[in-house]
Amino acid sequence: MSFIASLRTPRGLITALLLVILAVLPLLTQAFDQRYLLSIGTRIVIWAIAAVSLNMILGYGGLVSFGHAVFFGIGGYAVGILSHHGVASGWIQWPVAIIAATLWAALVGALSLRTRGLYFIMITLAFAQLVFYVGGGLEAYGADDGLNISRSRFPGVIDLRDKASFYWLCFALLCGTLWFCSRFANSRFGLVIRGAKSNDLRMTALGFPVFRYRLAAFTLSGAFGGLAGILLANEGAYISPAMMSWVKSGDLIVIVVLGGMGTLFGPLYGTIAFFVLEESLKPILDLFHKGWGEYWQIVFGPMLVLIALYAKGGIDSLFGSPKEWRRHG
């Protein structure tokens, strides 16, 4: 199905609209003088990159990784530590951060993909906690309090201190991540991962080395997670172990499930819904009674329970089931 034809379906139309709004968000927030919205928008885009990367293994691969926020931390700390030691150039910081995230993902994947079920959930969580505690133990880099850093420098190319430029950079990287994910999902490699989700014994019997495929997917997913971490550190000019607390990993899973697992744009819908819910539940509760907004999670928690119980397909399934299932993207 071509791009133009896909605009005729509700899913295509809504997605296209969403992308257009995201693309011009800095202009909108400037026109309406809502700077705060741009910073939320930036965080949405960065979290969406992480969610898309988690979706590659969680959604397409069916591997419940409960430690994905660790890549926020690794990407962020690589940038922060280099910047702290005077290496300000993004041309050095970013590749180092992505390589670090990739290597860590490869190591964790190699160990944890040997297990399955609850063991896999817990071992990914445990490895994330390990890095979390290391971050909290690094006295030189602020330990639990974290560290203020200066943003990565790309002299002559882009100034990350400019909010709008930084947003557009994040948005472009999100588009790149989505493009990569669509290539991944429809490639032979992606089909093996998806096949192994429904029946890994059959895939093994068909002669695919499922473990190696999954390890490759896990590693890729970690690399993109590291990218999100780089951006997150630059967004706040700040790193701390809290970036990679296990609650953030839980939030990422929530986002992917909320948006629609194993769908291309689901993680993006999920991220937007998650942040919009967070930002809107507070004022809505405040309307009922002043001060209740602070307790928004008392509503959000049970909502998660209901989503888990009754909304398997996520937001994406509201647009009907995708008709075409392309062999090649």
Binding site: I253, W296, L304, A308, L309
Partner: peptide, 16 residues
């Protein structure tokens, strides 16, 4: 996955 999600929601609920 659904169990993780629902009980994660319960944690948020009980903390609040």
């Amino acid at each position: 996955l659904e169990q993780v999600l629902a009980t994660f929601g319960l944690i948020l609920f009980f903390n609040e």
